[in-house]
Simulated assay, not measured.
Amino acid sequence: MDALSLDILGPALVAGLLILATHVPLGAIVLNRGIIFIDIALAQVAALGVVFGTVMWGAVSGLVVQACAVAAALSCSVVLTWTDKRFPEIQEAIIGVLYVFAAALQIILLAYSANGAEHLKALLVGQILWVTPLQLLVIGLIYAAVLALWYFRDLARERHLFYGGFAVVITASVQIVGVLLVFASLIVPALATRHAPARWRLTIAFNIGVFGYVGGLVASAILDIPTGAAIVCVLVPAAALAAVLIERRFGGARDGVPDGVQDGGAYRHDGPHVHQRAE
């Protein structure tokens, strides 16, 4: 039972809660905008920045590696902001191309590293069990700033703020929990709660995420399996079950009308913001 010690799992759980605090509201915006794979593309680009910095200057300074990761993600966000404005009808396809291109470059760069396979595995599933108090402090400050931006500004409408803040969050997250868990934390809870009442949607999504992280951490400790993969494998079935229960509880009450569409007008709910759109 030593594996279930809070000294081991406590920091990882705190990291998971911090990630969910930002990824759940941002994931709702991503889902509403229909750009589902933007998170995994930006995560892959941020990971590419980490790999590039490590291969080129890893022995010099960890700050250089972080600068490479942030620069890569922000550059990608600038490109996506421009394409979202100019080519919105093919934005999802462009995101997919960026993901594939970044992944291919990452594999090429890792071919020059003696520990390339291990590094690639770490970037995919993360090292959440090894998170340090300093890392928790840093990502806590970053996430707090982005949450303040989400609360006070309408990120769903302001492309530059959305893509910029999103890039910074993904860059911080991917180095702790990996590409797979970043995508799962953003999309899975939001997808499961799309039929829940708007006022409860984020709360329910957050709790689904908490269940996935707690269950995955416990399963990883007991079964001695990779933590990131375990969290994903608990989160997805839990979210699927929650989606079914939500649909049965709330789906029929709206008679097939999506939440937010009432009285002949369409409304989009983005966190604390409620915006009215003309039909």
Rank of each mutant, 00 (worst) to 15 (best):
E118W: 01
G126A: 07
T227V: 12
A278P: 02
Q276D: 09
G264Y: 15
I95M: 13
L42H: 05
R194E: 05
F250K: 01
L235D: 02
P237D: 03
I19N: 01
I107F: 07
Q262R: 15
I19L: 15
P25R: 03
K85N: 13
G27L: 09
V210G: 02
R159S: 06
A205R: 00
L129A: 09
I19R: 01
F166S: 05
L13A: 11
Q106I: 02
A72T: 04
A43D: 07
L136D: 06
R33S: 05
S5K: 05
H195A: 09
I170Q: 03
E92C: 04
L120Y: 13
F152S: 03
V261R: 10
L155I: 03
V146T: 14
E158W: 07
C233T: 08
G10R: 08
Q66T: 15
A243S: 12
V179T: 10
G209C: 04
V236N: 00
E92H: 10
S61E: 08
A103M: 12
L63H: 15
V65K: 09
A240V: 12
I231G: 03
V232P: 02
V78A: 10
V45P: 01
R157Q: 13
F183C: 04
C76H: 03
L155R: 01
K121V: 02
A229D: 14
R254L: 12
S5Y: 11
R153D: 14
A198S: 12
D39G: 07
Y163N: 11
A47G: 14
V138T: 09
G10E: 10
L74I: 15
G34H: 05
I142Q: 07
F166Q: 06
S77M: 05
Q135D: 15
T132G: 03
N32K: 01
A73C: 08
L161H: 11
T81S: 13
A172K: 00
I38L: 12
H119P: 00
A114Q: 15
Y99S: 01
S5Q: 06
L223A: 05
L235Y: 06
A278D: 15
I222P: 08
A3S: 06
G34R: 02
I8C: 05
I90Q: 14
G209N: 00
H23R: 01
S77G: 00
D270P: 06
L129F: 08
T81M: 06
L202G: 03
G165T: 05
W200Q: 15
A122W: 04
V257R: 11
L80S: 09
V174W: 10
G271F: 08
A104D: 07
Y112T: 13
H275G: 11
M1A: 06
F183E: 09
W57E: 13
I107D: 12
A145S: 14
A196H: 07
G256W: 02
D84V: 00
I36R: 04
N32E: 06
G178T: 13
A190S: 13
A196P: 14
D224N: 14
R249F: 07
W200F: 14
I222F: 07
S61D: 15
L109E: 11
F37A: 03
A167S: 12
V234P: 04
A103T: 01
V274W: 14
G215L: 02
V45C: 05
L120A: 05
Y151V: 10
E89T: 09
L9R: 00
